[in-house]
Structure formats: structure tokens, C-alpha cells
């Protein structure tokens, strides 16, 4: 049983014109097995929240705390946070030229497990994970995200989620850019990871469609750098119908 606890999180981004405050006090608690959806207008700070928890160097934490099972995540380097059990599926996965997917995955799993996996069982694991996400085996020899289509990048993120077995996963718009079939395939991957590892999920999305596959226990409305309303799955339907007008503006 794990708990990710975010308290009063304030974050600013460093720009040429100085620091700009983006997150203005975020409170959120995610436990193993729970699914929390965050919905909110463009630019409200959802990705900033995701990146800040994962430790992206672009953001400065100006207040608040983030802990995983009581341990301060904000003091940790990015890789230490991953080793503590955190995973971020990115809105825009990064291309890494010259580094093959299989080399990348092997290096990652070795780092996370503290020892190199047995070659034979690992090859099988990767093959199964790729098959489950209907990815061509040829992706293993391609360079990380290089030339992948938008949807292929998202499948690759969820394949990593299944292979790396984190405790808490943040999925930043994993559903954006997926066709109808891919959305189902990717969602099933998330559900499998939840069932297999009692994963806690923070799912950032603009659409209710993915929530039909991955049922949220809680829905949070995010606007102007903080959570402005919380509810159950029904809140998502209401947002889809009415938009964010009542939350934005000042």
C-alpha cells in the first residue's frame, strides 16, 4: 500500500523574464489502487504538476511538499523518484537518437531492480509487453521515440509502465492523439498494470472517453494552478457538457 501526498504545492517556471508562478497551492492524495482524473483547461498547470512531481529541472518548487509513503520526493533526483516507485507517462515523449528501445529498457529495468535481469526471461517480458500493446517487434531495435507517430509514442509509454512496475503512475494526456482502437489498447494496458501491481493512477485528460475504460474514483477540476472542485465520475460528464466557464475567470 503506497500513498503519494501533495500538500500546498507551489511551483514556478524560470523564464527569460524571471520566475512565473504556475502552481498556486495544490493538495492531492493518491493511494495504491485508486484512480484520480484531473481535468482542466489548456495552460492551467496540469503538466507542470506532473513534471514537478517527477523532478523536471525546468521547474522550481517554491512551497509545499510531495511525499511517497512519507518520504520527501522533492529532495530526490529524478532517477531516485523513479526508484521510489514513481512513473510519468509524458504528454510529449522525448526522442533519444542512437539509443535503441531494447537498450533503453534494459538499462532502465537494471537501474530500477538494482541488477541486470536474466536475459532470457527479460527478452520474453519485453516481447509480451510489446505484443500486449500491439507494437511491432521491430520497435525494439528502433531508437527511443525517434520517428514514432504520436500514437506509437503513447503505446511505448504504457509499455514501459507495464514493464517497469511503478507504485504510482502519472499519465499526462496519454489518450491525446490516439485513434479509437489504440485508445482501447492503451487503456487496457493501464488497467492491467493497475490489477497486476495495485497501481495508483493520476490521469490527466481532456476527454471522458478514456474514463470509460479506466474508471476514476475521483475527478478533480484544475484551473489557474490549483484544484478548484472535486467529485466522482459524474463530475467528468458535467465538465464535458458545460466546459470550464464556471471555474475560470477569476
Amino acid at each position: 500500500m503506497s500513498t503519494l501526498e501533495i500538500r500546498g504545492l507551489q511551483v514556478s517556471v524560470n523564464t527569460d523574464a524571471g520566475a512565473v508562478e504556475i502552481l498556486k497551492g495544490v493538495d492531492l492524495t493518491i493511494k495504491s489502487g485508486e484512480t484520480h482524473a484531473i481535468m482542466g483547461p489548456n495552460g492551467s498547470g496540469k503538466s507542470t504538476l506532473a513534471y514537478s512531481i517527477a523532478g523536471h529541472p525546468k521547474y522550481s518548487i517554491t512551497g509545499g511538499t510531495v511525499t511517497l509513503d512519507g518520504v520527501d520526493l522533492l529532495e530526490m533526483t529524478v532517477d531516485e523518484r523513479a526508484k521510489a516507485g514513481l512513473f510519468l507517462a509524458m504528454q510529449y515523449p522525448v526522442e533519444v537518437p542512437g539509443v535503441s528501445v531494447s537498450n533503453f529498457l534494459r538499462t532502465a529495468v537494471t537501474a530500477l531492480r538494482g541488477e541486470a535481469p536474466k536475459l532470457r526471461t527479460w527478452t520474453g517480458e519485453v516481447k509480451d509487453a510489446m505484443e500486449a500493446l500491439k507494437m511491432d517487434p521491430a520497435f525494439a531495435t528502433r531508437n527511443v521515440n525517434e520517428g514514432f507517430s504520436g500514437g506509437e509514442k503513447k503505446r511505448h509509454e504504457i509499455m514501459q509502465l507495464e514493464l517497469l512496475k511503478p507504485k504510482i503512475a502519472i499519465l499526462d494526456e496519454t489518450d491525446s492523439g490516439l485513434d479509437v482502437d489504440a485508445l482501447r489498447i492503451v487503456s487496457e494496458g493501464v488497467v492491467r498494470a493497475k490489477e497486476a501491481n495495485n497501481l495508483g493512477v493520476l490521469l490527466i485528460t481532456h476527454y471522458t472517453r478514456i474514463l470509460r475504460y479506466i474508471k476514476p474514483d475521483f475527478v478533480h477540476v484544475f484551473a489557474n494552478g490549483k484544484i478548484v472542485e472535486e467529485g466522482g465520475a459524474e463530475l467528468a460528464e458535467k465538465l464535458e457538457a458545460n466546459g470550464y466557464a464556471e471555474y475560470v475567470g477569476s
Binding site: 517527477a54 532517477d79 510519468l88 509524458m90 515523449p93 522525448v94 533519444v96 532502465a108 527511443v144
Partner: peptide
Amino acid sequence: QLFYLMSRGIELADARRL
């Protein structure tokens, strides 16, 4: 690139090497 690799548990020195 370094952030992406490190977010998967890979240490800075190893990420740079990759």
C-alpha cells in the same frame, strides 16, 4: 533527453553515457 531517461530510473552518469 536526460530527464526522460532519468525518469525511468537511470542515473545521471548512465543517462549521459547513453
